[in-house]
Computed example of a mutant assay.
Amino acid sequence: MARFSREELTEAFATFEQTVADAARSHDWDAWVSHYTPDVDYIEHAMGTMKGRDEVRAWITKTMGSFPGGYMTEFPSLWAVFDEETGRVICELDNPMRDPGDGTIISATNISIVTYAGDGLWSRQEDIYNPLKFLQASMRWCQKAEKLGTLDEEAAAWMRANGGFK
């Protein structure tokens, strides 16, 4: 017997995605964090494992408050698989960066596995991706912005720290 109905799982995920979209626009990550259980396990392969909302909030606020995370404009799922038996949603998320000035879209994707706990809350999330792909996308964005004259100091500092200037 399924742990959650497909309807409940898809509705909860749609609400979760809308909350992420709202947070990406407002840069207020509290509502997003509130969709996790208080004892959530958040596994982020490059940054480690966070336990509980407070650790997730501190991480996401820092990550999305600086380059390159803060330059990502949305996080839409490109596809999703719903597993009612385990209460999991497996999806591929796009991470497009803001327009560097000429309409170019530069992004990288990740796979996320989120585990539903019921009542609109998620108890676990694991983000799986190749950090090199995100580094390359961020560098391409910096190089494009530099060429267009739109590279700000924060992104330029990141570019210098990551070997982008010769």
Rank of each mutant, 00 (worst) to 15 (best):
E126G: 05
F134I: 07
A58V: 05
G87R: 03
P96T: 04
E92V: 10
E85S: 09
P96A: 06
A157V: 10
T104R: 03
T150F: 03
E84A: 10
I60L: 13
I105Q: 11
S138T: 04
E153T: 09
M159W: 02
R140L: 15
L121I: 03
E84N: 03
N95V: 08
A108L: 07
R124C: 11
W141Q: 03
D102L: 00
P68F: 00
R88L: 04
A145Y: 00
E154M: 11
M64W: 11
F75I: 11
P96G: 06
D127R: 12
E153L: 05
M97P: 07
A58H: 07
L93C: 12
D54F: 08
A108F: 11
G118L: 05
A137F: 01
A155L: 02
G69S: 08
D127I: 01
R124I: 08
D119Q: 15
G69I: 04
I60N: 14
S112K: 13
D54E: 13
V89L: 06
C142R: 00
C91V: 03
A145I: 02
A157F: 02
Y71C: 10
I105W: 06
W122T: 09
A117F: 00
K144C: 13
S77T: 14
G69M: 04
T115I: 08
E85A: 09
A80S: 11
N110S: 13
R160E: 10
D99K: 12
D94P: 03
A117W: 00
A80L: 09
N110T: 08
F75A: 13
G101W: 00
G69K: 11
Y116P: 07
R140C: 10
V56C: 07
C142I: 00
W79K: 14
N95P: 02
P96C: 04
A155K: 01
E55W: 04
D119W: 14
S123K: 11
M72R: 10
T86N: 03
I113F: 13
K147H: 12
Y71K: 12
F82V: 05
P76M: 06
E126P: 08
A155T: 01
G118Y: 08
W59C: 09
E55F: 06
K62Q: 15
T63V: 13
N130E: 07
A137C: 02
G65L: 04
G149I: 04
S66G: 12
E92N: 12
G65T: 04
R160I: 03
F82M: 10
S107F: 04
S123G: 13
I128N: 09
A145V: 03
S112D: 15
R140Y: 06
K133M: 13
V81C: 14
P68Q: 02
G70H: 07
G101Y: 01
A156E: 10
I60S: 15
W79M: 15
M97R: 03
W122Y: 05
D83V: 09
D127T: 02
T109W: 00
P131N: 04
R88F: 03
A156L: 13
R88P: 05
P68L: 03
G149N: 04
A137I: 01
S112N: 14
E126R: 06
E154I: 13
L135Q: 07
R140E: 15
M72T: 09
E74A: 15
E55Q: 15
P76A: 10
R160G: 08
G120Q: 05
E126W: 11
F134W: 15
W122G: 11
G103W: 01
V89K: 08
T63R: 15
Y71R: 14
I60M: 14
